[in-house]
Amino acid sequence: MRFSTLATVLVAMVPLAHAADADRGAELWEQRCTGCHSLDANRVGPKHRGVFGRKAGAVADFRYSTGVGNSSVVWNETTLDRWLTNPQAFIAGARMGFRVGEVADRADIIAFLKRESGM
């Protein structure tokens, strides 16, 4: 590939990169996640504040599935992205089946969770 062609391809790819937007993530989280989750209270799902950087299944007073409870996963951008893409495919035995289909939506929700976790 000639340099000029490669440069054109790279320039064309730039808009595809998504800068995660925690504010938009807050709106998405409110819309999509609050059916089961709160930031500071365990409900159908565990509380979300502090989830970023936390080991899976580590909220002391929440009863997890065996799969999540035994998991060694630590939640970060990569693991949360895989989780939100398809939870039951990422951790066998997970109860959560809720998926977020769009890459940008997942990134923004994760950015919000990271911010709310003080990171």
């Binding site: 819309q31 999509r32 059916g35 089961c36 398809n86 939870p87 039951q88 089946g97 809720f98 998926r99 977020v100 289909g101």
Partner: peptide
């Protein structure tokens, strides 16, 4: 939204 989000699973 929760119900809609689990449909694909």
């Amino acid at each position: 939204n929760a119900y809609l989000g689990v449909i694909p699973s």
